[in-house]
Design a binder for these strands. Sequence first.
DNA 1: TCGCGGCGAACGATCGTTCGGTTGCTCGGA
DNA 2: TCCGAGCAACCGAACGATCGTTCGCCGCGA
Lengths: 213, 213
Amino acid sequence: MTAAPSEPPPSARTRRARGAAGARRPVYDASSLLAVAVQEFNTRGYDATSMEDLSRAAGITKSSFYHHVSGKEDLLRAALSRALDGLFGILEEPAAQEGSALDRLRHIIFRQVEVLTSELPYVTLLLRVRGNTETERWALARRRAFDASIASLVAEAVADGEVRAGVEPSLAARLLSGTVNSIIEWYRPGRPGSESLPAEVVRIVSEGIIPPA
Amino acid sequence: MTAAPSEPPPSARTRRARGAAGARRPVYDASSLLAVAVQEFNTRGYDATSMEDLSRAAGITKSSFYHHVSGKEDLLRAALSRALDGLFGILEEPAAQEGSALDRLRHIIFRQVEVLTSELPYVTLLLRVRGNTETERWALARRRAFDASIASLVAEAVADGEVRAGVEPSLAARLLSGTVNSIIEWYRPGRPGSESLPAEVVRIVSEGIIPPA
DNA sequence: TCGCGGCGAACGATCGTTCGGTTGCTCGGA
DNA sequence: TCCGAGCAACCGAACGATCGTTCGCCGCGA
């Protein structure tokens, strides 16, 4: 353990039971280091976060950190993959493929809020990607594909006469995605009333945010 | 002019007429360089943008760039100031201080969309600040103060019975700000229909984004 | 002649990454 | 039961690259 002279506590350490079946002695595993890294990325921003920052947050030195991860951009890719898998998984659910366009849309919105909150750090990182590297551009393209499938669903619902076509369907789709995604700016897990958030969001995008009395 | 050997065109150059009344020969002025810098900041992200990137976008060398600006963070501060001045200016307008809470709220939303679109690069930068430096924390605090005044206005409108209190006023206020701010993610100036956007946003937050038929 | 706008070169700092070496636990064989 | 080999975890030091910033100098127009 080599008692460190300064402050860092063994924060996200996931010590496996001594002598457990399997490999030798993994003090850190890949997913817990990823969680630490994503948290730092979201606090400081990806570019402003150094590998020194990440390793310090994990409680080890920079060179030790490299024994567990292959590099900074691979951490980013793993995190973005997790977020994208969560979102695209929604589209493959039965309720997202059966029923009227409006019903499918409502289900997707509901589930999108659930995924946003359950995978908050990863989705937050995804929604802040700018496209500087090939990894970021890949994530941006996948994200645009997700938004596009929602936009086409909105258009279908309007064409079927299931929603009032007060505005352009494309504008409605953009504001819809923007409203749902903005949740990452303020949502923090563990606060009371979180479990009702998906239903409240679905209602609010149907009835309006500030509907006159 | 000293014809550069490579590609960069004299992009945002604001050449003053030869021999015009006044000072010597300001080829670049502070505001045009700020515009160039903010555009680069928004494309790559503030931290990922180097002074080399900025000067290249301006068509001069890095050392020449420093003859006109005092540093990277001062550029950021100037840009964030411009965005914040635009937003807080809304709150001082007569229509934001007189009338019912709902009318004031509608006016602020309308004007906020106008400012978002007219000052798009500066507000975009503001909405992406993370809080790494003292400048960024100052901007974050001011931005939170703006959001708080909107939240209290929503609460007032609910208390006065002017809007249907379907959900928590604080949730409505957060989704309201998120919806309006998300416009920066897709709005680009000069496209047809832009002039009607503020009114459409006001209507959509009142009637819902996807109201059932 | 003056001085502003522009330039190349260089500063120290920090970046992501690599390398060689030390520690201490685990396990097979005596 | 003891021991030595092997290896995962960890570390300090350093790599070349790039960062924001500064400096001294030059050329041209007023």
